[in-house]
Amino acid sequence: MFGQIEEYFRTSLDRWTGMLAAHVEVSLLALAIAAALAVPAGILCARYERLKGPLTGLFGALRVVPSLAILLLMLPVLGTGTAPAAVALVLLAVPPVLMNTVAGLESVPAPVLETAAAMGMEERQIWQKVRLPLAMPMILAGLKTAAVEIVASAALAAKIGAGGLGELIFTGIGLFRTDLLLIGGGSVALLSLLTGVLFELLDKLLLKYKNV
């Protein structure tokens, strides 16, 4: 068993790194797009009460739909490849970021906002210097959830031709090759755990004031 795994890494290391790179690439792309869409949308929801109901309702329902269904639904619409996979991953990642942004912005205590206004801050300053920074921990937590979800679903995206480490797993299942299953499953699992750890480090780094 370990001999086989060692053999794989000796002969096909560049294929493995290629799949790893494809996995990380599509994940980062999806996370960046999702953040660029969901954080502003969350700010709009917190600002305009009328938007909040429909938007959170829609994405709340989207969150419940199985990820495999969302991925495969892209196929008739956009075909195979990295692009449909990225679109599906964005759809999966938007709900947690959006919900956490709204919740974070709304959980800022009213007295704090009132104090900021009383200190002579303008609406814009209050958002930039008080409300957003105080909502940051929640937004970051949403991004972490989204990132872990993306890494997991990107493994499934191998089925619609997006490449990535999921290919190893599906090949392993198809050929019943234990070594491929262990390498593929282990790599995806480690990548996912690493993503979680990275976000925890980011949280510590960006939000030092929390631990003072």
Partner: peptide, 21 residues
């Protein structure tokens, strides 16, 4: 929580050698 953050496809793959398809 650590176990939960392992993607499902990966966990399924890792368990196949132990419990089969």
């Amino acid at each position: 929580s650590v176990l939960y953050s392992v993607p499902s496809l990966a966990l399924l793959a890792l368990l196949i050698p132990l419990t089969g398809l």
